[in-house]
Design a protein around this nucleic acid. Structure first.
Lengths: 255, 255
DNA sequence: CTCTTACAATTGGTCTGACCTCTAGGGTCA
DNA sequence: TGACCCTAGAGGTCAGACCAATTGTAAGAG
């Protein structure tokens, strides 16, 4: 029993030559590792590839399906199967996290806290490394926020883009991906309540504080400003959600 | 084109009633969301479930396959398909991140930095919230490290468990999962070079510093101690890797 | 000559039905 | 009562066919 704690470190990895379709996944992974398949590449047609690997088409499809589920491959009917080519930062699919949240009953507060930790980390790094271009983009998004104070949905777009830019400025694509994973889920919730958003001006000001700290290359200030911003954002979102719940309860019209 | 930046926020979600198998994934997800399927539950046999959902067995299998790939379901030949039951903290599969790393050429340094940010965050939270039990476990693992200074592989086990305990003590399962995702990958690399590990005593001492800070409920000190520990760990690991490379180069025996 | 349109080959998506392999639980025999 | 074996049922794989979407090309109109 003492070894059980290390179980989560097990990998689905290569040498688990269990089922045939797992073998296919391994083969494809190896091809990617070896660089034979690069982002944007198109895989051979399923019928050919199946013959190459010596498996049947359904089995090959099962393997492709697995890799597609984790966001590595993407199939388009009539066109082919492609290695995912991400223009911007590499994106990890957030649905696994979403499922896990349902399965284990994660609270919104827990999700917010995770986001806060990640955003503070990237803000700190961004303060150390942001380039002029990136800071210019941040500034533009803040301007966008101020010009859409009366359009919450538009405001939210600028909000998101600002945070993305900060993440990009951190120079760490892994943290950026993880942050997006979490932020995506919170965004989905947010977009349902955002119509009732208030205090957008305050929010815009908070973003300016973050921006200034990054501009001054002051990591600690950037972290602090980001923390403050997210604490308030959480409070605001919870309030919006509560109002929605109250209204639905009064009208008796769920969903 | 201006809307392109928001693309990563798109979800594979529900309403994308595109292909039939995606529909199946949605259906299964809904069942989980609604709580009809709980961790540890067994799904109906594929043939029955396919009939229920009104799809063919291959299509259903494709959906199951997708969910299995992200770690939500698990199929065992002859037994059935089960909703994953995690004993400890919920685990996110690290293979997507691993693939992404290969695909985009993530450096080991970037990975280390991400881990450092995450570990610092959880250490800070752990300092605020660790229970007596958790601190006792940490202490025991440190003892374990000191008693296995001459057995690097055993030392590594205690090392991992210590970090897991800290993560658990953070009380945030999301951060814990993300941290494990990253740590798993670094661990795989590490386990290949660990035989040559030195300075284990210093490493054990560093863990003690972290432990003390957590015991004193001093988040800043915990963060600082964790940072210091990981910086040194990275340096050590890079050195081990370099030695391995040099040795392989001298002997001319790759792999 | 260029642009548009329609066709046809290519490719992934789905289905039917069959067979194999492994697991689990029950029945049998010592 | 216990250990062993056997069978029903589960997922895994295969084969072949057809459907649907895409794409490139070739024919026709301007």
């Amino acid at each position: 029993m003492t070894a059980l704690n290390t179980d989560i470190f097990k990998t689905i990895d290569a040498e688990r030559r269990g089922t045939t379709s797992e073998e296919v996944v391994s083969q494809l992974r190896e091809m990617i590792h070896r660089g034979e398949l690069r982002p944007g590449d198109r895989l051979p047609p399923e019928r050919d590839l199946a013959k190459m690997l010596g498996v049947s088409r359904p089995t090959l499809r099962a393997g492709i399906r697995s890799l597609a589920a984790v966001g590595v491959l993407q199939s388009r009917q009539g066109a082919g199967t492609f290695v995912v080519k991400s223009d911007g930062p590499p994106a990890l699919d957030s649905s696994p996290l979403r499922l896990m949240a349902s399965l284990h009953g994660f609270t919104s507060a827990e999700m917010f806290e995770a986001r806060q930790s990640l955003e503070m980390a990237v803000a700190g790094l961004a303060a150390e490394r942001a380039t002029g271009d990136q800071m210019a983009t941040m500034s533009e998004e803040i301007t966008g926020m101020f010009t859409s104070l009366d359009d919450p949905e538009q405001f939210l777009v600028h909000d998101m883009r600002f945070h993305q830019t900060v993440a990009a400025a951190s120079g760490n694509r892994i943290l950026t991906s993880l942050m997006n994973m979490v932020a995506t889920i919170l965004f989905d919730v947010r977009s349902k309540t955002v119509k009732r958003a208030r205090d957008l001006k305050e929010s815009a000001e908070m973003h300016r504080h973050i921006y200034r700290a990054i501009r001054e290359h002051d990591p600690e200030a950037a972290r602090a400003a980001m923390r403050e911003h997210l604490v308030r954002a959480q409070r605001a979102q919870e309030q919006e959600a509560a109002e929605d719940a109250a209204r639905d309860g009064a009208n008796g019209n769920g969903r």
